[in-house]
Amino acid sequence: MMKSLSAAGVFTLLAIACLTIMVGCVIVPGLPSVAAHLGVASAVGWLITLPSLGVVIFGPIAAKVIERYGLYRSLVLGLFSYGALGTVGAFLTHPALLFTDRFLLGGSTALVMSGGTGLLSSFFTGEQRLKMIARQGMSIELGGVIFLFFGGILASAGWRWPFSLYLVAWLFLLMLVIFVPRPDRTNERTTEGSGEAASPLMKPIYAAALFSMVCFFTAVIVLPMQLHSQGFSEAETGYFLAFISLMAVIAAWAMPRVVKVRGEFGTLYLAFLAYAAAHLLLAFATGPALLVVAGVLMGSGFGLSVPLVNHMVVEHSPVGLRGQHLAYLSMAIFLGQFLSSFMEFIPGNRPRIFLGAAALAVVVTALLWRWHAALPGEKQESEALP
């Protein structure tokens, strides 16, 4: 019999979801000064993207850990190591040690993301699960609002202070132990072989997740430098990035309703077209008005795509493969974050980077449409290009 989850337990698992986007973002508002003091000013993007690479490399290991020890114990391990590895980064001034720490932090994040989503989904089914995954997406971005806001304030107080936010993982660990019951063994060990075949939808879902994060984190990495060159302070940069996250919260809240009208893939098309429009505006924005509109569109792209791909993986995965597929999804999401750092190598100035990201979003929209049209037995109603 499936165990019930109290309101405090739901809040705990939604709060834990915040840690996935927080892993790189807490130091973003103070990125220039953090990189300078840590002696890595010439490799500033790696501070944000190395945890993402760690998720990609450690993703298969996380799947094995979940298979062997279950979702609950894997999440406990992930939360403890997340808080320790995240905080110690403030005191590692040798680049090799610092980058190793950020890389290992990605392994903890893989456990937190896969274990947290798997544990949350094990308590719900059907439409309730869709609503809960949408709330998880809202909580991820609401966490972005909160952590970027406080990250900007703490960066103004001192470059080391934003690293202290990683310790919130230990608070969430305590809440997990108190409020979340361990699920039934059959629901917890989701990666035990079931003999069921994976859905052909998995590949386009992973692709959508990967490129969504490339589009989103290109802006996250480039915007602090762009806004700094336009005279914005570190705190103001944090406020604007928090505004983008707030827009993503609203979009994630609306996502289930959009899916009912446009379908799953139709919603993904809207998300990538929103990314394209946002990057076009950022390429030419010189004042607050265009920045605000771009922020609304950027947040909408994230809020309509990332919670949806989480739900699609859960819904289209056999129970016996769900934990494995969630681990692969976390790899796709964070590989997208990591690959976003290479967008900086687009020749020319920063507006050309935004134009490149806009072009990428348009291409991905077309590819997803073609991919979905080629899938056998898939319903196409209400999922044409908008």
Rank of each mutant, 00 (worst) to 15 (best):
V214L: 05
A84Q: 00
I146P: 00
A277I: 09
I27A: 08
A110C: 10
V249Y: 10
F334Y: 12
K3T: 06
M312V: 03
A8M: 06
A43C: 03
P256Q: 11
A332R: 00
F232A: 14
F284H: 14
G287I: 02
P95T: 00
S245W: 04
V56K: 03
G295R: 01
W369L: 08
L79S: 03
A15I: 04
P32F: 10
V261M: 10
L335Q: 04
F232Q: 07
P183Q: 09
V76P: 02
L167N: 06
L355K: 08
P181D: 01
L201Y: 15
I346P: 00
L273Q: 05
H228G: 14
T87G: 13
L75P: 08
L120H: 02
R370A: 14
L71C: 04
A96C: 04
V319W: 12
S305H: 13
A207R: 13
A361G: 01
A63S: 15
S229D: 15
L223Q: 06
V314C: 05
T186I: 13
L142I: 06
R322W: 04
W161A: 15
L375C: 08
L142N: 09
G195L: 08
V26D: 05
F217H: 15
G299C: 08
R189G: 01
S212G: 15
M1P: 15
S382T: 04
A278S: 15
S233H: 07
A384K: 14
R370N: 06
Y69I: 10
M343P: 01
L360T: 02
M138V: 08
V220P: 00
G377M: 08
L19R: 12
E234T: 08
L13K: 04
K3Q: 13
T117R: 05
F216V: 08
V259T: 12
L282N: 08
I133D: 00
L105N: 04
G238S: 06
